[in-house]
Amino acid sequence: MNDLKKCVFPADLNSALAALSDRKSSPFALAGGTLSGKNIGPETGSLVDLKRLPLSAIKATASGLSIGALATFDEIENSKAVKSWAGGVLCAAAAKCSSQLVRNMATIGGNIARPNAFNVFPPLLLALDAKVKVAWKGGSRTLPLAGLYDGTLKRTPGRDCLITEVILPASSKGLKCAFEKFARTESSWESYITLAMCAEVKKGVIKSARIGIGALSAVPALAPKAAAALAGGSPGEAAGKTAAAALAGDLAGMRISPKSMEFKKEVAAALLRRFVASLA
């Protein structure tokens, strides 16, 4: 950051996007700064400080739960709207992020903008089938979260576009969910494995499920085999065991280092079994 020549404090989205489109100034957008603040390279000539943008509102709408990209972990954790959504699982996940001082600064937008194994929201948002709104000068697009990592979005959030909003679909409101970050200590950034487990349960039947896996790779993954194994079953020990066995297949299919793979599989299986049993 030693060659920084300019710092812009946009008060509205259009000014922010205009600043980012000024390629000559080599701009970089900064939200909370807890991930990227220490990694602003020497090529950055202009810092675009997003903190003044009115992008932190959280509200339930007809199409779902809208969370402004600049909402901090602390704001999300304490939001009534978030608490009443999907059993408050986003609050539980937000609480698991690092420490209070970091939660006071880190934003949901920053947490999903770049792939990082220890980021807390990506596996959960994947499991909740969330969408993300991205804006750039003269345009915007709403796409599934995975689109940020699989090349669909041919832009780089923070450099030439901004994530403005995270939208949880209305159908996710009544989901039964659990978020497990299995780590060495309570404030560990890394974990052995992170699981975001969401299930739609109606009249004692698991209609569908989505399981997001974090910590094993930079990009979060879904566990489709485990989800398929759960669909149509009734919650309980037997369903749990079947799903856990299927989950092992999902994990085996991920290209992860074999180190402690067996252990992670066991833990994942236990956590999934317990989640399924809890749905009864």
Binding site: M1, L4, C7, F9, L30, G33, T34, G37, K38, I40, L47, D49, K51, D74, Q100, L101, V102, N104, M105
Partner: peptide, 22 residues
């Protein structure tokens, strides 16, 4: 390095100084 920053305790070592303007 915790300081009060715009109403919340935040980490001064993670805030680029120039962004403390205002």
């Amino acid at each position: 390095c915790a300081v009060m920053f715009n109403g919340k305790p935040r980490l001064a070592c993670m805030i680029p100084a120039v962004t403390a303007h205002g």
